[in-house]
Design a protein around this nucleic acid. Sequence first.
DNA 1: GGAAAACATTTTAGGCTTAAAACAATTTGG
DNA 2: CCAAATTGTTTTAAGCCTAAAATGTTTTCC
Lengths: 172, 172
Amino acid sequence: MPAVSDCINMLDSETKAVETPEDHAEELRLWLRLLTCTTLIEGEVRGRLRQRFDVTLPRFDLMAQLDKAPDGMTLSDVSKRMMVSNGNVTGLVERLVDSGHLDRRTSETDRRVQVIRLTKLGRAEFRRMAAEHETWIADLFADLTPKDVRELMRLLAKTKASAQKSAARRRP
Amino acid sequence: MPAVSDCINMLDSETKAVETPEDHAEELRLWLRLLTCTTLIEGEVRGRLRQRFDVTLPRFDLMAQLDKAPDGMTLSDVSKRMMVSNGNVTGLVERLVDSGHLDRRTSETDRRVQVIRLTKLGRAEFRRMAAEHETWIADLFADLTPKDVRELMRLLAKTKASAQKSAARRRP
DNA sequence: GGAAAACATTTTAGGCTTAAAACAATTTGG
DNA sequence: CCAAATTGTTTTAAGCCTAAAATGTTTTCC
């Protein structure tokens, strides 16, 4: 919604809206900044996980999901939560089962479904990594005041809702 | 900086700070929300680029960088700007040169350096895609008021600075 | 001038990621 | 009941991505 002063060239002599390519440069800049922040932090976390624990970020993320679900999750659940494709989860899980971090079994009641859980080893290692991970995040956001954090949370919630609505418009 | 009421358990009987694992749950939640927003929007843009133009997001991003640099860029420049590894750029450029979107030549003055530019075709296609891309972004952020956008820009700038400082602390 | 350091890029090996197709099991609706 | 639709997962093909090592080039500085 541009300020009135920005609209002068978009109104014809009869004060009627004219079809003009609208200017969305601000939103574009916002998106690029959002992306930069995420890429920056993600890269930093990725590097620290590798250096300190020799683990990849996707593996850590998957274990984080499972740590919150003591009764296990299906691959579909994981895929939705992590917002990645099904095939991606299949490979990720396979590697984590091989390394002894995950337990996978076919559901008794529905033979299509695979339920995965953290093993004892997986849970222990994840907890160790997560504790340190939390301090990295705190440090990365250290210059934000509690008020900044609250305000960002609020605005990002609004952003998420807006984007979800837009996505739903395209794919109803 | 927790509120005073949150600190009660962190002070011992002599009102001295005690070594307690600090609570950074808020920052962690903020990071997850930031990541969710980015992943959501990025996935949406990726899908639309593929459907409408049969182009990948990394290719689009690379062309976007070059569109802003009519005199071309070196691979290092691109790598820094896109915040991806050098080897990644090598492959990306190779595919875009093959498809006729990029021109690549060795610098006259420094034979280590490769300078890449958009070809006429590359520029034309990018401009066509970028125009539509901008409307997608506007739509994805449509529910944010201009004030929201300004405030988010400000807070993300602060976030970026904080994260860069934190990264620099680790890797001086 | 020449060895050593720094720089730009490519190569390598391995893992991540996606979209789409294929497969298997369950549910639905005549 | 049973064919059709749906659901959960895996496979496939291609591309993306990283870290680290290797290669070639230029600069630095004795």
